[in-house]
């Protein structure tokens, strides 16, 4: 799946830099960015598919309401990307399906 164009950074005050890995590729981020911002900076659209109909989705509201930004973070599925700050070395992956919000049910072949 080719990545979509990425979100771009506007001129910033000096920031602490961290490196996260989105689908294995390193992405330079700023310390306070969310994991969902990293997904968008990497152009990882879609960032998941739904369990109900396998349809493609991406971060939508970025304020914790819609749960469209669910991704796999450091091996754990169903992480709400917009509510989780990036950490140096964080590994973010697309999530395929994955219904169980408690993170213990079957999830796809991501």
């Amino acid at each position: 799946m080719p990545n979509a164009s990425a979100f771009e950074r506007l001129p910033c005050r000096p920031q602490v830099r961290v490196t996260v890995f989105v689908e294995g590729a390193p992405v330079e981020m700023q310390a306070h960015d969310s994991a969902a911002a990293a997904v968008l900076a990497a152009g990882l659209l879609p960032s998941r598919t739904t369990p109900a109909g396998d349809s493609p989705r991406a971060p939508y509201c970025l304020m914790g309401a819609c749960f469209e930004c669910l991704v796999e973070i450091d091996g754990a599925p169903n992480q709400q990307g917009c509510m989780i700050p990036v950490r140096d070395g964080m590994r973010i992956r697309r999530q395929y399906g994955a219904r169980d919000m408690h993170g213990e049910g079957p999830h796809g072949d991501a």
């Binding site: 990425a6 979100f7 771009e8 506007l10 968008l40 152009g43």
Partner: peptide, 9 residues
């Protein structure tokens, strides 16, 4: 924009 100074493509 506010939290990450990012703009969409």
């Amino acid at each position: 924009l506010k939290s990450s100074a990012m703009a969409p493509p």
